[in-house]
Design a protein around this nucleic acid. Sequence first.
DNA 1: ATTTATTTTTAGGCTTGTCTAAATATTTAA
DNA 2: TTAAATATTTAGACAAGCCTAAAAATAAAT
Lengths: 232, 232
Amino acid sequence: MKNNNDILSRAEENYLKEIFHLSGKEKDKVSTNALAERLDTKASSITDMLQKLKAKKLVAYQKYKGCSLTGSGEKVALHIIRKHRLWETFLVNKLSFGWDEVHAVAEELEHIRSKKLIDSIDQFLGFPKFDPHGDPIPDKDGNINYQESKIKLSDTSVKSIVEVVSVNEDSLALLKYLDEIGLRLGSEIEIYSRVPYDESIQVSIDCGDSISLSKKVTENIGVRFKSKMTNK
Amino acid sequence: MKNNNDILSRAEENYLKEIFHLSGKEKDKVSTNALAERLDTKASSITDMLQKLKAKKLVAYQKYKGCSLTGSGEKVALHIIRKHRLWETFLVNKLSFGWDEVHAVAEELEHIRSKKLIDSIDQFLGFPKFDPHGDPIPDKDGNINYQESKIKLSDTSVKSIVEVVSVNEDSLALLKYLDEIGLRLGSEIEIYSRVPYDESIQVSIDCGDSISLSKKVTENIGVRFKSKMTNK
DNA sequence: ATTTATTTTTAGGCTTGTCTAAATATTTAA
DNA sequence: TTAAATATTTAGACAAGCCTAAAAATAAAT
Ligand SMILES: [Mn+2]
Ligand SMILES: [Mn+2]
Ligand SMILES: [Mn+2]
Ligand SMILES: [Mn+2]
């Protein structure tokens, strides 16, 4: 069942995780350049590694055609993501880290190899379903709960009221900015108007003052529809 | 103050830590072969690395003369040891790991690079002074509290009563055996007699049944003298 | 349908950390 | 104090993971 070569290196784990993310819910093929950019390496390095991962049957790959995860590759990716998100949750919930301070550390912690450790952390945290950025945490069998009703704040229509359910964790600057303006998971956002030219929107956060959010911000915030504004 | 090349690799950190341990309280010079055995590598690999660490001014080293840590090398070693022991304490105190289950995981966790993380763990644990094996935990400035009165159980005299203050964490089998016979940190041991031939001793643990402990066991247990047995 | 631009792969090289085999120092024993 | 044993270092090699430069494939634009 488990042969000795499923002891994967940190680099291999990072590649698998990133292929999973770029592949998305639709399981699209992932291009060499896309991976190179996300992993901050050169395209030639990606090609090298894809050949190795293919030999280990963790990715499906054909020259010039992009790659995708195999069943076992996806299983590994989900386990790394589980560890990443549980550690982030631990840092925020137990050690009072800010949501902008956890990603870098979790990038290291996600590679710690101990089934017992991560399952204990899971239990210690009370089996959380979402991480501090609103991303779903895979369970120990790799089951993951996408929030079906989630849409981008940039895709909402004027006069609707929505609830923030996730934020893109990739940009430290974004997370700090959201902290500043008081936008967090669970915040209620009323969309007053949209400027067609730059697609910025005018909103209020948790019934606060009206504020403008740029497209660059709104496309990185996941929300769930709550209701239409009542005009009174 | 800090140049960019004090980002040390995992291997370098492990070498420094092991030199610290082998060097001991007396700061003895450490031989190439001793290091090779502990680090489970070949002597030639040790020589290579010592040359690199010397170039980085982390160890003092002269061909054929052994090595020792410099001031900054010792500082690094103490920081790794601090992390190792704090993580072990976390696993035992917060996640209910056994004292025999923590060392392997801590070998990985000790390399996580985040000042904030380890200081938060320290606080979360209430600034513990000793790890689950009774070893002192260096504070954030690298100060370490050796227990001056500690001696090996193998060096105690018959009819004395001692308290267990530490156990050698290196052998999984030893830790499991000690669990079995109910010997833990804080246990009171009465030494009844010693067999000169094999240096085994007859003892009772926490007033339990009399039991024989071999030299191999007793030389791996640290104790503190409490009193002489009263004959009644 | 060519030409041009972009993407991807190959070829060859570098560093880190390891190895084996051979050479050299040091220590121990005769 | 010389010879044998042991400890250590050097020489040369290798895998992993990355790089640059050049070649090849694919996609886009005339
Ligand atoms: Mn993250
Ligand atoms: Mn996250
Ligand atoms: Mn340990
Ligand atoms: Mn310990």
